[in-house]
């Protein structure tokens, strides 16, 4: 029972986890994103090759594999941060039309990326403006889409800081003064403020302490459910994939070698490489 007493003390730091109803599931829904035969070559070296999959609204897809397996290349290609050598990526815009993302104009692409999409980098410094305040970091996307009322922007920013468990009185502090976990949570708020429907995450919990990681995972999970976000999460951590994702793609040498329901791939892996990957996990 003493164990529990310790936990009671630790419980002071626990936030009131928001138990949220997930987005209702509708099997007749059409895919939000279609990836078709996407390949990226660096000269003769393969970045990723012949990758195809669909993503539905509200669905979280994990891309797993070891370093160098092409996960991040694939993520960059789908999110238009990089142009693939060949292949197609289609996205269902808010007006329900399917558009080929590489045929969008630069202006349309940017608008998409700062409204309907989010990108969470492994290193928060890559996704944040380190020398402007937390409030402005969150407010930037709003200002970019024409929000012109300072008070409203600040209020929204403050609400989002609260959502990601950053004390409101830190709103005027620069992320330079934040811990790694806070920075990552700030980056998430900055991405979610415009209510995107699709968020790309590149090792979102990489480089964080285990306890900080747990907090972030819990936060991400409830936000994804609450907002009905679709997400593509690149991770080498199978535990992260299990906690966050519905569906999983296993990559090796640039190709998808296994895909399916997350718990099925983890508990009943079929491909030799997936079996090796899963058997390599350290048990606590």
């Amino acid at each position: 029972m003493t164990r529990h007493m310790d936990m009671t003390h630790a419980g002071d730091h626990l936030p009131k986890t928001s138990l949220v109803a997930p987005r209702p599931m509708d099997l007749s829904e059409k895919p939000l994103l279609q990836v078709r035969s996407v390949s990226k070559y660096y000269g003769r070296r393969i970045g990723c090759e012949d990758v195809s999959f669909d993503l539905w609204p509200g669905e979280v897809l994990a891309i797993v594999g070891e370093s160098g397996s092409g996960k991040t290349t694939l993520l960059d290609c789908i999110s238009t941060r990089m142009t693939p050598t060949s292949g197609m990526v289609n996205y269902r815009m808010r007006d329900d039309t399917m558009r080929e993302v590489f045929r969008l104009s630069e202006a349309e692409k940017r608008f998409l990326m700062r409204t309907d999409w989010g990108f969470v980098h492994q290193n928060p410094a890559d996704g944040l403006r380190m020398t402007v305040s937390a409030g402005a970091n969150v407010g930037e996307r709003l200002m970019a889409i024409g929000e012109q009322h300072y008070g409203d922007i600040r209020q929204t920013a403050s609400d989002w800081l609260e959502q990601v468990e950053i004390a409101k009185d830190r709103i005027d502090d620069q992320p330079r003064a934040f811990s790694g976990g806070m920075r990552q949570r700030l980056q998430i708020a900055r991405n979610l403020v415009t209510g995107p429907r699709l968020v790309f995450m590149d090792e979102p919990t990489g480089g964080l302490d285990v306890s900080v990681q747990a907090r972030l995972l819990d936060l991400l999970r409830s936000l994804v459910a609450e907002l009905g976000l679709a997400a593509i999460v690149v991770t080498h951590d199978l535990a992260v994939a299990r906690l966050l994702s519905h569906r999983m793609v296993v990559m090796k040498e640039g190709r998808i070698i296994e895909t399916g329901l997350t718990d099925r791939v983890l508990d009943d892996p079929q491909a030799p490489y997936t079996q090796l990957l899963i058997s390599s996990i350290l048990q606590v």
């Binding site: 402007v132 402005a136 889409i145």
Partner: peptide, 18 residues
Amino acid sequence: AVEDYGLMHVKLYEDIAQ
């Protein structure tokens, strides 16, 4: 080129905030 000017208001926001 694409009128991506959110950043400009970020600067003004920072002024007011500080």
